[in-house]
Design a protein around this nucleic acid. Structure first.
Length: 670
DNA sequence: TCAACTATCACTTTTGAAACGG
DNA sequence: ACCGTTTCAAAAGTGATAGTTG
């Protein structure tokens, strides 16, 4: 079966159907939707963090790590919902998100593999109730539930793979069932959440690290409900979601179209509110992840959000009056800029003596390890350059076929069903977020033009690979019960937790490097962050710097790297922000991370002197607390990590068809 | 009593296998 | 036998609604 998934180069690029959604519509101006949830944010987040990046004198010094961008492709749809107050249904059996997260990535090394993760963290510490037409905080949030991370089913895939298509997380499901065994993301009802997307360089499944880029799109915040509270949201969902066509008054036509959507001629939600919202500028803004010269193509050619757009964010639809939790939160004028989370999530690297060269690939961590790209068989799933060695021939098992078959399956992210089809207007979906004012940051955020359009400084030295762990000594053993089948030839690095990570329970997996990668399929599952009564690690502003964890790459480290056309595309892309960069002004319910892949306290301190003097802003998105990405689970502690997936494979036989989850809890999933 | 939750319904889209023809 | 297209039924997703729960 020849598919574009296998050969992304056959894709139509930016003109693919999925890429065309809503490009003919401008995002509406926005009124504050959610309560500014963090008053202390401005103070908690170092202002230098948002400072404009220094303009490199020598463009040649720019490395790819400086260009990782993520664009919320259906940002305008999200903004429509956000302008009303996005509600997400959660059910016991799990409910998909609508709108879904449709993303475009650029700036990745085409030859390196990356894992994409989705997690959803509490946006604040309040429970909400819909009263008087608006959401009001009515009390303290429930204890935090086990955090699960949804692994994009394509993971790991090459940068070329991710960049060649729209990345959709529509398979992720939300549930309020705390005993969920399906690997869905467990959330509390009537709480406000913020999705995050993490791009993790993965040399192999057990050897993550080398770089992590986390992206937060504030407009994707939502309040979980078991039944819609706001009629406007219901209306929007019905008009936007193809599955809800049956509830439209006249089939494919919009409900109350003549009133609310006078210009609509189809069922595209994206255009639903165009008549009610001011039209945004057609141009979009790109926000590179890390230091990029202002003169770079991805930047200079991109218009800075017009301040006028932010001056009149009043939507036609009366905004919901959210309590002003974040009255002093910084204003983000160009709000689709994701809160940048970091890039400093690293893992221990294998010792130089790692005898498994076939597992190695181009590395970007010159200071800690060197990976070599070797010729290999190109996996159908990781098309492109063949930088990723296929499982050695010595690794023959009955599961091999399973893996291959899986790799040949059409990738789920090709499904676009969760988003309405674009209307007859074929103009590109407006990716611009320039006019979007994120509610939570509306008031005091610095000028987006100076904030988001400026690359963040990267004064941090090449990070050493480390396993970020909490200092609480929580259990840190973890497994990957739900690794997609094509991830099986990945192995853990020889983890050698140091004294700083006493709880790390990773066995020395160097033998994996010596032995062929296991090819057994990983049953999809989820990693769950176990709920805990222990307090959440306090946020440490010092670690909230936009420091890229992506190791510096020597120019030769990416022999196959190619220019990424998307970097110059006028789209709304955002630089990654450091995980934990968001101040924890409103401490969330306590939890006990079993393993913290990234922890602020472990991040290199940012030397203020390295920051540009012109650094203006104080914070981008202070609206939610810092939640490090935590990966951990050990459903079968008796098995060494490399074999647990075999155990699970034997039990279940098939990977979860809708993606994989990292379940940090002790519960077995799938 | 009421807010929140759950199961069920009708309707829709999606998906994949089977049928068909070249 | 192979390949591509079409057809169709099952699976899955959707909001609405009535009933249940605490």
């Amino acid at each position: 079966m020849l598919t574009m998934e296998m050969y992304p180069s056959l894709a139509l690029g930016p003109q693919r159907i999925g890429d065309c959604f809503y490009r003919d519509r401008e995002p509406p101006a926005h009124m504050p939707l959610f309560p500014p949830a963090c008053d202390v944010a401005p103070t908690g987040l170092p202002s230098r963090m948002l400072g404009p990046p220094p303009v490199p004198n020598n463009p040649a010094n720019k490395t790819q790590k400086d260009e990782v961008n993520m664009e919320l492709e259906n940002a305008s749809l999200w903004k429509q919902f956000s302008s009303v107050g996005t509600e997400m249904i959660i059910t016991k059996k799990g409910r998909r998100m609508f709108p879904g997260l449709k993303l475009k990535l650029s700036g990745l090394n085409p030859s390196l593999r990356y894992i994409l993760l989705l997690d959803i963290i509490p946006a604040d510490n309040s429970r909400y109730r819909f009263q008087g037409g608006s959401w009001q905080p009515v009390g303290k949030a429930e204890a935090r539930l086990p955090d699960r991370v949804f692994i994009h089913p394509d993971s790991p895939a090459t940068g070329a793979h991710w960049q060649s298509r729209t990345i959709s997380f529509h398979y992720a499901k939300l549930t309020n069932n705390t005993l969920d065994s399906q690997g869905h993301i467990i959330l509390h009802s009537l709480h406000r959440y913020q999705p995050r997307v993490h791009v993790i360089e993965a040399r192999d499944v057990l050897r993550w690290g080398g770089g992590q880029h986390s992206f937060v799109f504030p407009e994707t915040q939502f309040i979980t409900v078991t039944a819609y509270q706001n009629n406007k949201i219901t209306e929007l969902k019905i008009n936007s979601n193809p599955f809800a066509k049956g509830f439209r008054e006249d089939g494919m036509n919009m409900l109350n179209q003549s009133v609310i959507f006078p210009h609509r001629s189809d069922n595209i939600a994206e255009s639903a509110y165009t008549s009610t919202f001011p039209t945004a500028q057609a141009t979009s803004t790109s926000f590179p992840s890390v230091p990029l010269p202002q003169s770079s193509s991805s930047f200079s050619s991109l218009p800075v959000p017009d301040s006028s757009d932010t001056s009149d964010p009043q939507p036609s639809i009366p905004p919901i009056n959210y309590p002003s939790i974040l009255t002093s939160s910084p204003t983000l004028s160009s709000s689709t800029t994701p809160s940048l989370q970091q890039t400093s999530f690293t893992f221990p690297t294998p010792p130089p003596s790692n005898p498994s060269p076939e597992l190695l690939m181009s590395s970007c961590s010159p200071t800690t390890n060197t990976y070599h790209t070797i010729p290999e068989t190109i996996s159908p799933h990781t098309p492109g350059d063949g930088s990723f060695p296929a499982a050695p021939s010595t690794c023959q098992s009955g599961l091999q076929d399973h893996i291959s078959a899986h790799s040949l399956l059409p990738q789920p992210n090709q499904s676009l069903q969760d988003e309405p089809i674009t209307n007859e207007n074929n103009s590109p979906c407006d990716q611009s977020s320039a006019v979007f004012i994120y509610p939570n940051t509306l008031h005091t955020n610095p000028d987006p033009a100076s904030v988001t359009a400026q690359p963040l400084p990267n004064p941090a030295p090449p990070p050493t690979l480390q396993c970020g762990l909490t200092t609480q000594g929580a259990s840190t053993s973890f497994a990957f019960p739900s690794i997609p089948p094509h991830m099986q030839n990945l192995s853990f690095a020889n983890v050698s937790p140091g004294p700083a990570h006493p709880a790390l329970h990773l066995p020395n997996l160097s033998h994996q490097a010596q032995a062929p990668p296991l090819s057994a399929a990983f049953p999809s599952s989820s990693f769950t962050h176990p709920s805990s009564s222990l307090p959440h690690p306090s946020f440490q502003p010092s670690s909230c710097l936009a420091v890229s964890s992506t190791p510096s790459l020597p120019p030769t480290a990416h022999p196959q790297s190619i220019p990424n056309p998307s970097t110059s595309a006028p789209t709304t892309a955002y630089p990654p922000v450091e995980i934990g960069a968001i101040p924890q002004f409103n401490p969330p319910a306590p939890y006990r991370p079993d393993m913290v892949l990234h922890h602020p306290s472990l991040l290199p301190q940012l030397d203020p002197s390295c920051l540009p003097s012109s650094t203006p802003p104080t914070a981008l998105y202070p609206a939610f607390p810092s939640y490090p990405l935590r990966l951990c689970q050990d459903p079968h502690p008796s098995l060494s990590i490399p074999f647990r997936h075999l155990y699970r494979q034997h039990q279940h036989g098939h990977a979860h068809p809708q993606g994989s989850y990292l379940d940090m809890s002790s519960r077995a999933v799938f």
